[in-house]
Computed example of a mutant assay.
Amino acid sequence: MDFQLSDDQRALRAGMRELLAGRFGRDRMRAALDGGGGVGGALWRELGAAGLFALRLPETAGGVGLGLPESVLVFDEVGRCLLPGPLIATQLAAGAVQGAAEGEAVVALAEAGRPVGHLAAADALLVLDGDAARLLSGGALRRLVGEAEPVRSLDPGTPLWRVPGPDGYEGEPLPDGARLRREGALLAAAEQLGSAARSLEAAVQHARAREQFGAPIGSFQAVKHLCAGMLVRTETARAAVYAAAVTADPVEIAGAKLLADEAAVGNARDCLQVHGGMGFTWEADVHLHLKRAWLRAGQWLTAADAEEALAAGLG
């Protein structure tokens, strides 16, 4: 089996990187954080026009007609730039929520027992409770928003609200909730992969530019070892994520999410180590990747659940 990317897949990845660089560069990312980290309506519509949310819808339904591997490539690029908003939930529910495919509607993720991100911007909620899935919108969503309480978020790019438990949700049942959770976990793993790669790049760039004792710090063995470990984590996670995108196997998806979470969190921590004290300052971007990685690690499929799935797959 050939796991090399096709020319079309490479072009898709390059096009998404170019789009995000032009529409959501560092200045715009920082402006979004200063504005509370919410979803920007204009940017959301631009992403919809670019086909991000309709990527996997069939062409007969107005979609792009691509598959899970292509979505993984796109969300890999999304993870590099700290793009805010519930992009995964919106793509997964694009066929069920009017306007979601075009970027005219935002679909947030609600998981039992966890705060909801970007609730204030949501036009619908994808509610996951175990392997069951529901879609909440309209008056039921407005009532839920009225009962929600804002909570402090670890990630400044993801405002959070505490909402009633699963018994408080109404909504329309969705088929195959287990598949939605698996695919969401894989796309979250792709975002973690992109974040891990970006942390690696930032560490290497800083190690080359920063000098101590008359030499770049990248020439010091301890820093070399940190960067080498970051590369190993990234490429190990990449192999797992790309393979799971092709097979869509539940056990492989669990392994991919576990490895990608470890790569994103571990690389951001080591990148902070390379940057030293300046990495913890608000002006640096390193800590933002760490905070987003921590948050993503608790979404769609936690480490404990992924480990249980892997253990069950060995039986």
Rank of each mutant, 00 (worst) to 15 (best):
P216M: 02
T236W: 00
G266N: 08
A304F: 07
D129A: 14
G194F: 04
L5E: 14
S153D: 10
G313K: 06
A248M: 00
P150Y: 05
A248W: 00
A207Y: 06
V107Q: 02
E149P: 00
V64G: 03
A264L: 01
E307A: 11
L119C: 04
E59A: 15
G171C: 08
V74D: 03
A303F: 11
D270V: 09
R210Q: 10
L290F: 12
V107F: 02
A21M: 11
G313A: 07
D27A: 15
D34A: 14
Q212K: 14
L109T: 09
A312S: 03
G35V: 09
R233P: 00
L12H: 02
D8V: 05
L135I: 13
V72S: 03
D249F: 06
G168Y: 06
A188K: 12
C227Q: 11
L187H: 13
V163N: 01
G184A: 05
S137Y: 00
T158Y: 02
D27Y: 09
L310H: 07
G99K: 05
G279R: 00
L272K: 02
A244P: 01
M16F: 15
G229K: 03
L126V: 03
L226M: 12
V106W: 11
S153T: 12
Q212R: 15
A11R: 14
G85S: 11
T158F: 05
R143K: 15
A42C: 03
T90F: 01
T90S: 08
A31N: 12
A108W: 06
D123G: 04
V151C: 07
D155F: 00
M1Y: 00
L295N: 13
E46M: 03
H287K: 12
V223Q: 03
E102G: 09
A100F: 04
G157L: 12
A243K: 15
G85L: 04
R181P: 01
R26I: 12
Q299W: 14
L87D: 12
Q212N: 07
A263V: 01
E183M: 15
V232M: 10
A239E: 09
A94E: 13
P159S: 05
L20A: 10
T60Y: 11
A178W: 14
T236H: 03
A254V: 01
A185V: 10
Q221G: 11
R179K: 10
A110E: 05
A248Y: 00
G130N: 07
R142A: 14
P173T: 12
C227W: 04
R10D: 02
L231Y: 08
V72A: 08
